[in-house]
Structure formats: C-alpha cells, structure tokens
C-alpha cells in the first residue's frame, strides 16, 4: 500500500466527495448520512466516515483516493488515513466565513504528513466569492512555512481536479515528464 494513496481533506461541504467522484474510475463509495449538527446548515447530508475512489493505472495498478470527513470530531481518523499517502490535496471553500482560518487549521493537523510528502491547495467557489484571492493563500502558506501550488478549482470539473493532482506530483518531483495537448479553460458547468 506504500505510495498508493491520495488524501483529500478540507472543511465540511468544500467538495471532497464531488472531487473524488469526478476523478474516480469507479463509482465512489460514500458514507454520507443526514447531518445532525451545524453541518446541516451547509448541506443535508455529509460524510461521516470517509469517501473512497480509485484511479486505475495503465500498468494495472491502482491509486486509492481517500476523502477525510470534514468535521473536527473525526480528526482522530486523519493520522490513520494518511499513512502511506502520496500527498495531500487540501480543498478550501472560499465562500466560507474565514477560509484562511480553515487553511491554518488543516495545515496544523496535517503538518507532519505534508512535511514528509507534499501539498497542493485547491480553492473552490471562487466564482461565488473572489476574496481572499489566491495571493492571500500563498502569503498565509509562506507565513506558516509551507510552499505549495494553489489553484482555483471547481470540484465538479474533472480537468480541474486532475490538474491539481498533477501539480501536487510535479511539486514533489519536478523531473516528471509530461505529454498531452494544450489546456483550454472552459466555463463553469
């Protein structure tokens, strides 16, 4: 299982379940349940254990995609989930009250995992709220001693999630070769 897991983390409702669904080769396993706490204010159902998806590789191998539950009361699971992970895809919802506080909270929790692997930050819902801009995330990361790609993403859009994962892998190892066509940004679905 070593080096075969990609971890998706972020606050409740940021789009972790959607991001995994948009990139997974198999229907993702979701453990949603009716929300019974403050989460209910943001969405009717939420992930209470974890999300799971799979990427099938050309050689027959698999990469497991794990989404951590967003609520703080489940943070005891985060250490177990991250064991053997390739790196962290941290999704932050720009439309929440204090997205930079969310960034700090998750980086604090995943600091040792990120230090030994890598990090890429995807900022969602910037179309609903443009502030803070991506520069603010970079400043906050630098202040906390991190350097990482920060990209605007729409979790529903496979191209965005794919590019964020590619940025994570290249950030860990810039020597990877790459092929394919030009990237043409498209309008939000």
């Amino acid at each position: 299982m070593k080096y075969r897991k990609l971890i998706f983390a972020g606050p409740v409702g940021v789009g972790k379940t959607t991001a995994i669904a948009s990139i997974s080769d198999e229907p993702p396993i979701q453990t949603d349940a009716a929300a019974s706490d403050l989460t209910r204010l943001r969405k009717p159902a939420t992930t209470v254990a974890l999300d799971y998806g799979v990427l099938h590789l050309p050689d027959g191998g698999k990469v497991h995609l794990y989404g951590t539950p967003g609520q703080e009361r489940f943070d005891f699971m985060w250490d177990i989930l991250t064991e053997g992970g390739i790196g962290l895809i941290l999704l932050i919802d720009n439309n929440r009250a204090d997205p930079l506080h969310d960034l700090r909270r998750f980086l604090d929790s995943f600091r040792s995992f990120v230090a030994s692997t890598g990090l890429a930050v995807g900022v969602t819902r910037m179309d609903l709220k443009a502030q803070p801009p991506l520069e603010a995330y970079h400043h906050e990361l630098a202040r906390l001693g991190f350097r990482a790609p920060v990209l605007e993403v729409d979790a529903r859009r496979r191209a965005d999630v794919s590019l964020l994962i590619q940025a994570l892998l290249l950030h860990i190892d810039p020597g990877l070769s790459i092929e394919g066509g030009e990237h043409e940004p498209t309008a939000s679905p």
Binding site: P149, L151, E152, A167, L176, G180, E182, P185
Partner: peptide, 25 residues
C-alpha cells in the same frame, strides 16, 4: 515564481506544468 500561475484557468501548453513546478521550487 512567487506563486503558481492559476493554471486551471489559464491557457497553457502541457509543459507549463513542469516549468511552473521547477521555477516555483
């Protein structure tokens, strides 16, 4: 690079990704 360009929203050829990774590092 001070920061990664917002490549999910910018036109770019495929090699922009490794260039960004290298110049950011």
């Amino acid at each position: 690079l001070r920061q990664w360009p917002n490549l999910t929203r910018y036109w770019h050829p495929p090699q922009a990704l490794p260039i960004a990774a290298l110049l950011y590092r």
